[in-house]
Design a protein around this nucleic acid. Structure first.
Lengths: 163, 163
DNA sequence: GTTTTAGTACTCGGATAGGCCGTGTCCGAGTGCATCTGG
DNA sequence: CCAGATGCACTCGGACACGGCCTATCCGAGTACTAAAAC
C-alpha cells in the first residue's frame, strides 16, 4: 500500500506558497525548479489542489498559483484527499456472502456491516482523524522555529529567478 | 492508495480456520470454493501468511493449512503486514533538500527529520496502533455472538465437501 | 499625444502515452496413502 | 496372513505472464502585456 508521491510534492508546495505570500503567484515551472521535480507532472498534481479548493490559479503572464485560504485552514487530510483520493484504503468485497460461505448460517441482516470492514474502518478513521487534526499551519509554525531565515531566503530565491 | 485485496481474503480465511478448528487442515482449494475466489491466487496470499508465521502448512494428501497460534494472538496488523507489506504508506523523498530548496537557508542538521514526514508518521502510527490493538480473536467472539450457529454450519460445510 | 488594435509570449487545463506493481496463472518438489507383491 | 516396497494422487511452494493504475508528457484554450499604427 503506497501513497502517491504527489502528496509530498503538494504539501511542500503549499508550505512554499505560504512562505512567499499571496501577493505574488508562483508558477508550476518555478516550483518544479525549486524542488527539482518534473514540471509537467507537478503541474498535474497542483491542478488537483486547485480542484479541491486549496489553491487558486491565475492564467496568463504573471499568473500562477496562490493559496486559496490560510494554511491554518488546510489540514493534511485535505491535501491527501485531493491528491490520493478520498476513498478508504480497505474495500470490503463482501466475501462472506459469496460461494459456500454465503449459503450457510441463514441470511445476513442487510443492516449489519462486515465486522472486518468495521475494524478496518476504525483504523482508517484513526488515521484520518490524525491527518485532519494536523494543519499545515502548525507545520509552518514549526518550520519557522526550526529554521528562522528560511521564509526570507525562499522569497529571495523566487525573486531572483529570471522571468 | 489502495490496500491489496488479499488482505480481506486472508482475514476471512483466518476466521474460517479458527471455526473449523486445528484438528483438520483446510486446503487452498477448499477455501477458494468456500469464498468463490481464484484458487491459485488465494493460494499465493495464504503462503504469505505461512511465511509470516500466522498459519502452518502441511503438504501431501490430507494436508492443508491450520492456524499456527490462537486468533487472540493474531492482530489485524500482523495480517496486513504479511499481505500488504510492512512499509509505511508515505515515503519521504527529502525533496526539501533538492534543487533550489536545498541550496538556501544553510545546511540542514542531519539529525532532524522532515516535519511533514513526522506528521505523516504520526498518522501512520495511529493507524497501526489501532490495527495492532484489534485481534482476530475479538472478531471471532463478535461473530460468534452475532451469528451463533455459523461456526457449526461452517464445520458442516467443509465436512460435507467431497474429497 | 492618445486611443485602438493586432500580435505575442506566457499561463493554466485537460487529454494522451509509458512503466511498475498488484493480479492472476502455471508447473515442479515433496509427502502420505493405497495397492501390490513377496515371504 | 503379514511386511515391505512401489506407484500414485494430492498438497504446498515458488517461478512465470497479464492488466490497471500511478507516473510522466504533450498540446490546446485563455489571458495580460507589448508594441505598433491610426486618429
Amino acid at each position: 500500500m503506497k501513497m502517491s508521491r504527489g502528496v509530498e510534492w503538494a504539501l511542500h508546495c503549499c508550505l512554499t506558497l505560504a512562505m512567499t505570500g499571496e501577493d505574488e503567484a508562483l508558477t508550476a515551472g518555478e516550483l518544479a525548479r525549486f524542488f527539482d521535480l518534473p514540471k509537467a507532472y507537478l503541474h498535474k498534481q497542483i491542478q488537483a489542489l486547485v480542484r479541491a479548493g486549496i489553491l487558486s490559479s491565475t492564467p496568463g503572464p504573471g499568473g500562477g498559483y496562490v493559496l486559496a485560504r490560510p494554511l491554518d485552514a488546510v489540514s493534511f487530510m485535505d491535501v491527501v484527499a485531493a491528491i490520493d483520493g478520498p476513498d478508504p484504503a480497505f474495500r470490503c468485497d463482501e466475501i462472506r456472502q459469496r460461494g459456500g460461505s454465503g449459503a450457510i448460517g441463514g441470511p445476513i441482516d442487510p443492516g449489519t456491516r462486515c465486522l472486518i470492514d468495521q475494524a478496518m474502518g476504525r483504523a482508517d478513521l484513526a488515521w484520518r482523524r490524525e491527518l485532519a487534526a494536523t494543519s499545515l499551519g502548525s507545520i509552518q509554525t514549526d518550520v519557522g522555529s526550526a529554521r528562522p531565515g528560511l521564509a526570507e531566503s525562499t522569497r529571495r530565491w523566487f525573486a531572483d529567478q529570471p522571468h
